[in-house]
Nucleic acid binder design. Structure first.
Lengths: 114, 114
DNA sequence: TTAGTAACTAACATAAATGTAAGTATGCCG
DNA sequence: CGGCATACTTACATTTATGTTAGTTACTAA
């Protein structure tokens, strides 16, 4: 097992590292939306059910710090903020896409319609 | 967004469904080990760092109930239990493999050696 | 000067996942 | 009968993730 340190946190597998970066309830849904176009903060918020300001801004900040997305503040009145995906962020899209396809497969096995 | 129910739990995306089945700290490491050969309970326990009996038997039970693995109890003295992967379990291996590769890629970007 | 809007931030509360420690079942062997 | 070994299970504690509510900032328009 790999086992390595980053920012004082111990990781045991590369998969664990992936989830440290794009895991949790909202990061993949956010990246998935951003793959095609730029979104404003308020649009993302309306778009994802049950997503609070706290989680949205926390997740956007982390994705930004980790280089998966860009942020542009447009000084209009009131202010507008636009989020877009980076090249690094785009590299996560095939992974999310595969997880989606596999999810649909598991759902089908379990008799879940969508 | 899909949004569906299974066993009284609400899901919003197929990806979420994947993690309900093979997410958490230990399920992918377990499936990854079982892909090549049969393992006994005690071997799995020794093999994964910091894995407690509680988490090991809980995760094995869930993987078993969800059809990802098989269990065979061999009535020797003392008892021996062998876990193996099912065909359904094998279908998760390409996903885990892709996540591993992507993890190595992210680690490389961040200057982590393994 | 007050009010309104977008995009946050902080404090506190709850829920979910995992950890720890001890105990149980089965069966044989001495 | 007592003890040992494997494979668990149970009760409880702690940690981590997420939810809720109420601010805050910056700017302009009324």
């Amino acid at each position: 097992m790999p086992q390595f340190l980053k920012d004082n946190k111990k990781y045991y597998t590369p998969v664990e590292y992936v989830f440290a970066k794009i895991g949790g309830t909202y990061k993949m849904p956010l990246l998935w939306r951003l793959k095609d176009k730029t979104w404003r903060y308020s649009e993302l918020k309306e778009s994802i059910a049950h997503l609070s300001d706290r989680m949205l801004s926390k997740n956007l900040k982390e994705l930004l710090n980790d280089g998966f997305i860009n942020k542009e503040v447009i000084p209009e009145v009131p202010v507008r903020t636009e989020y877009s995906i980076t090249e690094k962020g785009m590299n996560s899209i095939p992974i999310i896409s595969m997880l989606r396809d596999y999810g649909f497969e598991l759902m089908k096995d379990d008799g879940i319609k969508h």
